[in-house]
Write a protein that binds this DNA or RNA. Structure first.
Lengths: 244, 244
DNA sequence: CAGTGGTCTAGACCACGCC
DNA sequence: GCGTGGTCTAGACCACTGG
């Protein structure tokens, strides 16, 4: 009730940021689930003992970070990892001509391994720690597009071995099965030549230039939870980046 | 004075957006110059006949778009294209190890030409229209990094031929010499092999994988004003992209 | 110290979705 | 019609800057 107001004496941060943190905590703890409607601004304001305007500023900030979705006349909802949003937010490869669409996936292998030095650094775990490694071949409009290797810290994904199938949209899987929300990611791109294996899987010649994309995805607490390395052909598609 | 309030009866857009547009217009017309301080919130509110809160919302939106810089206790300033901001906002190539820094440039050629079909489409001008083409070799920490070709619609850059020198930071040049502010850009990336010419200029072998970056930069009115194609070696540097 | 932007509040009305 | 978020207003106080 007065929890937030009191915290103000300790923290020097603005009230609306404290409100935001306290609301994000509800997402992290799972007391607010994806897809669920949350209390109205007025209710939250009463509950937290602050004005509606302060709650609004916190909710607006969370909406800007794609954590919430507000709909006039309906209410405020916890964002879900549904296809279209994930596609728009996290998938930067688009066909040179035609619609942006979700590529199909075929799992090539899925196994338990020990984290390499690079993987450990990216995921902030110890070298040699258990990780799940999934390799997938992805196609866009029937044409082979890329090979990606997803590395997950096994500690964060208990019961992974019990999965019978890995869906196309893994971010929804993380959310539904482990309550892990991907809140952001950072990618590093390089140009490399196709390896023998790349060439065999994608049906191109070895040495062909490819985009090498290394993505680290973060959860709501800004902790890394997924490392994804993609090698992508760019004859028919390109990577888009908007600078604003 | 009551101009904005009246416009409200015609436009159906929120008042703060109309205020924002009217303020952006001052930037476009140049009545507010980069680096200049603008009137205080209270003064603008009085002048436009709206409340301080509405002006604030407009100013906050413009600040979020990097058009203004607000400093508590000082005032609100028109953003300038200075090194550090441009570097952070528009330069996505960073060394694999070490600080992000502005690459040096050496002009290889600078000439008048006729717009190709692709250039014309990107710049929204007619095919064959006059364009200035500048080719530069850029190095990061002494090592050759990329070759870029900048294409400018000659109509927007009168007197370009009189330039004795092309500075490293061309966005500042556009601003100071032609009053053109680059407000955003969108980039398309592909992987390609180095051409013979690329290889000669950059000191690599032909066919080496390179990042091919095609950038269209927009002015304050969201009109394209610059096309820039870069071919970049990624042995020592990479392209970063944050997904939030 | 005065003036600026930053925060917080309270209340009014509008636009929208749903019953 | 009612409840939601969206806009707009007015006023208070805080935090920071510079003279």
């Amino acid at each position: 009730m007065t929890e937030v107001t009191e915290a103000r004496a300790f923290g020097f941060r603005p009230l609306y940021l404290q409100v935001k943190e306290s609301l994000v905590r509800r997402l992290i703890e799972g007391s607010w689930q994806p897809g669920q409607i949350i209390p109205s601004e007025m209710d939250l304001a009463r509950e937290l003992g602050v004005s509606q305007g302060t709650v609004r500023k916190a909710l607006d900030a969370m909406t800007a970070e794609n954590l919430l979705i507000r709909r006039q006349g309906r209410g405020t909802y916890v964002a879900e990892p549904e296809e279209s949003r994930i596609l728009f937010q996290f998938f930067r490869l688009v066909p040179d001509s035609g619609e942006r669409s979700f590529p199909n996936s075929r799992v090539l292998q899925s196994k338990l391994a020990n984290a390499s030095k690079e993987e450990a650094e990216s995921l902030k775990i110890s070298i040699g720690a258990d990780v799940w490694k999934i390799e997938r071949l992805r196609t866009l409009q029937q044409a082979p597009l890329l090979i990606e290797t997803i590395t997950l810290p096994a500690a964060r994904f208990p019961g992974f071995e019990a999965l019978t199938e890995i869906p196309n949209n893994v971010y929804r899987l993380y959310s539904q099965r482990w309550g892990i929300t991907i809140a952001g990611a950072s990618e590093k791109l390089k140009a490399v030549g196709a390896s023998i294996r790349d060439a065999r899987m994608l049906g191109c010649r070895p040495g062909v230039p490819m985009l090498h994309i290394s993505r680290t995805a973060l959860d709501l607490a800004q902790e890394p939870v997924e490392l994804r390395v993609s090698r992508c052909l760019t004859e028919r598609a390109h990577y888009v980046s908007d600078l604003r």
